[in-house]
Write a protein that binds this DNA or RNA. Structure first.
Lengths: 341, 341
DNA sequence: CTGTTAGCGCGTTCAT
DNA sequence: ATGAACGCGCTAACAG
């Protein structure tokens, strides 16, 4: 059984191990760290046994305090209930683990004040790097933070803020979507987006959409925001005469959810009455109506590369800021059958 | 060569503030902490200005090291991609924030070895309390941890491990579901569950199902696991003659996803051919076929109460372990129209 | 009210 | 190869 007196102490420290093994703290420290080679076999064995016997675990707080390295990465997430965020976070976490880092996640619930607080919080815990996926309404604090640690933006740029960034190639994604819709015979496309709040990816998608619609004489385009008016607005869109078959283009998973809800309310047959293509590929897309055609983002890779960016910087890379734009992948389902039907 | 570790070292410390304000570190510490009342206005002002001028932020690591209080709560999650986990986690995080705590989340991806490692990790960061939602295949380590800090189980019990626990009243939930199905005229019910892996809530649901089916002479029951055979098994179930209308009872959101997939593969009309009721209420349930009837779990409350349990223990409550069982709420949609159709 | 002192648990020189 | 001593940034005694 365990040594009773040691087990009863709520925390076994390095000193306890040292005394138990009749060596100095320094030797225990060397055993714990990467200097194990410098120890004699006899002492190493004694220490190993003492550690096992006492159930000692080094205190990362004290360690970090001394070395300045906490092995902690912070991540600021705007909306933890957005499946995209979760997927990216999962990618980040996997990469972190592979390199011996741990992830501290803060959810801001889209609230600016919480973003401030969490930013301060993460800093106070001596994280070594920061992954940011928020509105970024606190440029000054981000700037300050970036002087202390590497920082990478995910999905959303922050205006006038220079830093590594990994996200989606939005113009290319829009092009893929419009190509597909056009090919399938749709002529009247409405982009459904969450309300504007400064999110850069949202803005990029909308402006790319406008721009590319303008360049395609065969297509007509319009834009609508999610919200209480959505159903009414979609109704107007569907009822109005147009140049041909109508389709919805949902700018993310949340817009897709809202749009599908609205279409059902309007009594539409999914998706004979209107086509639909959505950014992000959620697990339930195949189940709705004839299935929702998606532009899948490589979320795991996005998360992984975000961490790798951090790692490179931590290892001394101070080259110019990089931007990684991933390509969306088209997953065709029944919602864009169009003239094949 | 950028040296972020050096940058971190050069961060403003309490000593810098003290010197700048020409006071002692103790006064700065008092200003930071809860003893601000003990300071003269003159000194408090000087400190405040120095802090602002230097951009000083207290180092929580050092703070935690000294006080033994890190204001950190750990959460171990089996599967971060399960919407239930996310929802509970969101509840926990909200509660944490309200009480000045931060949450460190570790995802085990259902892997035992990762559970071990994360457990050790969380401990090494001096978290003050732990919320566990995993298989709990490491009873010994949990036991050891519980000697050091309060611990609360969420959704899943761990055999022979005494601790606070908050989850769903599974027998009652099953009763609600069966009552509803029976009332709607279903007579032949198949429970769809993820494969057995020792998850207590999964076991409870299955055994309650068996037991209650046995007590209801009007109902016939069967059980099937998700997996590659699911579609074939459902097909057999649907084809076989039975005592009346057939329905599926999905034991959680993942089972619901898999089942709906399978039903579509089988060409079923959702949900005229077969009824369906599912535990958990996911945002896409209303969108599939005629809408999926759900037993919603109060996830936010579950998460909140889990944290409150911890908080009580942290404040000295050492009463007997508590078990909080929440009631599921029936949300009726089109998938259980049954004889009303 | 304020400063001085002594650690929290650990890593890292220096000696030996 | 090993140990003693110091300090990381901070809080908590104790004086004054």
């Amino acid at each position: 059984m365990n040594d009773f007196s040691a087990a009863q102490r709520s925390r076994v420290t390095m000193l306890d191990v040292a005394e138990h093994a009749k060596v100095s703290k320094a030797s225990v420290s060397r055993f714990i760290g990467d200097d194990r080679a410098l120890l004699s076999d006899a002492i190493a064995l004694r220490i190993e046994q003492s550690i096992a016997e006492l159930g000692y675990r080094p205190n990362q707080m004290a360690r970090g305090l001394k070395r300045g390295r906490t092995r902690l990465i912070g991540m600021l997430v705007a909306d933890i209930r957005n499946p995209y965020s979760i997927a990216v976070m999962h990618g980040v976490e996997t990469a972190c683990r592979q390199h011996g880092y741990s992830l501290v996640v803060c959810n801001t619930d889209r609230d600016d004040e919480q973003e401030r607080q969490h930013l301060a919080l993460l800093r106070s815990y001596n994280i070594e790097g920061l992954i940011v996926n928020t509105l970024g309404h606190h440029r000054d604090e981000l700037q300050e933070l970036q002087r202390e640690m590497p920082l990478v933006l995910v999905d959303r740029k922050v205006e006038q803020f220079d830093s590594d960034m990994v996200g989606l190639d939005n113009p290319a994604a829009i092009a893929i979507a419009l190509d597909h819709l056009e090919e399938r015979g749709y002529r009247d496309v409405m982009l459904v987006t969450e309300p504007f709040d400064g999110t850069s990816s949202r803005i990029e998608r909308v402006s790319s959409f406008k721009q590319q619609i303008a360049q395609r004489s065969t297509l007509r385009g319009a834009i609508v925001e999610t919200g209480s008016e959505l159903t009414a607005n979609l109704n107007t869109f569907l009822k109005s005469p147009g140049p041909g078959q109508k389709a919805l283009f949902c700018a993310n998973g949340i817009a897709a959810l809202a749009s599908t809800h609205a279409l059902r309310e309007l009594g539409c047959k999914l998706f004979d009455d209107v086509g639909l293509i959505a950014l992000d590929d959620l697990d339930w897309y195949p189940l709705v109506g004839s299935g929702i055609t998606a532009l899948a983002q490589p979320t795991a890779e996005i998360g992984g590369r975000a961490f790798e960016c951090l790692l490179k910087r931590l290892r001394g890379d101070d080259g110019p800021v990089r931007t990684l734009d991933f390509a969306a992948r088209l997953v065709v389902r029944g919602s864009t059958l169009g003239n094949l039907r």
